[in-house]
Simulated assay, not measured.
Amino acid sequence: MPAQPSRAPRGVRHVRPLSGRAPTAQRMIFGETLRKHREALGLTEKEVARGIGGCSASKISRLESGEHDFKEKDVLCLLDVYQVVDPAERTRLLELSQQANEKGWWEAWRDVAPKELQTYVSLEDIAARIRSYESGQLLGLLQIPDYTRALVKANSLEPGVRTAERIMELRAIRAQRFLNESAAQLICVVDEVTLSRGYGTNPIMRRQIEHLIELAGHERISFRLAPSARLNLPVQIGTTTVFDFAADQLPAIVYVERCNGGLYLQDRQEVDAYERGFDRLMVNSLGSAACLQKLKDYCQKYR
């Protein structure tokens, strides 16, 4: 079992990977360490910026949110301001900052992975628990390659064969890594619409649903189903993923899909609101056994 997710309080903060490097999980973790040092001394970002000179409060904010590389000079200046004097601790933190700057395995797919997705994949890699609801398609971790290819082709204005294949490769590797290397729990609310209005051909949808049935028996994966015929389902949270992490890594982070790109939320009140929304949807959806039966029924439909 993974360690209990962190429930530490958090100030108002959004992660917006819109400029510079995408804020990956490792950079966010080191940035969180810097933030804790700053807050332990009761310093504001502006006061820290003044303390090290030649720096802005916005840069301190970007460092803490993982949206900026950690240069050794900057880290040493910050450690001085934060009164970290023990040589062993300074060495440890410098090594962590260097590790945070390392490129992720997904860098080879940057041509088809926008910054929001790079952040998503990095969080997916280290999460202790992932809670997800997708309203228009199946979660990427659950997709078979043929489904992914058909989905990309159907939703691209000018679909390129190479682009579709690259996206398919990346999703397949993510799924393999989750099944073979991760210890995270996945709780997924499947919307029945994604089963009834599928992608590809009947044989592709049948293989996709057979894959879901196989995954339903995995010890770290649990499904619920939001049925199309049920009234008053609280689905207005839209496509949402909640990432929970082991204690002392990161507070919970919510990813919300938008038509013009995703948004990452870390504000405690906003995260709580989405968690409550997800829990309401989960409770009002069909349980694991009923969901499995629905999947079997759809297998027959796509014969």
Rank of each mutant, 00 (worst) to 15 (best):
A127R: 04
L123F: 09
H68I: 00
Q143R: 12
E64R: 03
V121L: 15
I52T: 02
L141W: 11
W109C: 06
E67A: 14
Q83T: 05
V81S: 01
I144N: 05
E134C: 13
Q83L: 11
L94E: 02
N101Q: 01
Y120V: 01
S135W: 04
S65M: 07
G53Y: 10
G66I: 04
Q98W: 05
A108T: 13
R131I: 00
L79E: 02
Q137S: 12
T91A: 15
V112R: 02
S58M: 11
L142M: 14
S65G: 03
Q137R: 13
V81T: 07
G136Y: 06
E95M: 11
Q99F: 07
D74N: 14
L142W: 01
D74Y: 14
Q118S: 04
Y133A: 09
E116H: 14
V112E: 03
L139M: 10
R110C: 04
V84Y: 10
F70G: 07
L138K: 01
P145L: 11
S58L: 07
S132A: 13
L93Q: 03
L117N: 03
R92S: 12
V121M: 15
Q143D: 05
K115C: 00
G140S: 06
L139E: 06
D74E: 15
S132H: 09
E124C: 08
V81Y: 09
I52K: 06
L142A: 12
W105S: 11
L123Y: 11
G136T: 08
S132T: 14
L138Q: 00
L96Q: 15
A113E: 01
I60T: 08
C77Q: 13
V112M: 03
G104I: 01
A57M: 02
Y120D: 00
L123Q: 04
V81D: 00
K103H: 12
E124S: 08
S97H: 11
E134S: 12
K103V: 06
F70D: 04
L94R: 12
Y82N: 09
E89A: 13
I126R: 04
C77T: 00
P145S: 12
G53F: 11
D74L: 14
T119I: 05
E67K: 13
A100Y: 01
Q118G: 03
S61C: 14
R92E: 06
A108W: 09
L142H: 08
Q99I: 01
N101C: 07
A128I: 02
R50E: 11
P145R: 09
L63F: 12
E72N: 08
C55R: 06
A127C: 14
A100C: 01
L96I: 00
Q143L: 11
V121P: 00
S58R: 10
V75S: 05
Y82W: 12
Y82S: 09
W109N: 05
L96C: 10
L142V: 02
L94N: 04
P114C: 10
Q98N: 07
R92W: 08
E116M: 10
G51I: 05
S58I: 08
K73V: 13
K103D: 03
S61H: 13
I60Y: 05
W105Q: 06
L142E: 01
Q98S: 11
S65H: 05
R62F: 09
A100S: 01
Q137Y: 13
L63K: 06
D74I: 15
G54H: 08
Q137G: 04
S58Y: 11
L139D: 05
P145K: 10
S132F: 04
E102S: 10
Q118F: 08
T119H: 03
S58E: 09
E107W: 15
Q98R: 13
T119C: 12
A127H: 05
Q137T: 08
V81P: 00
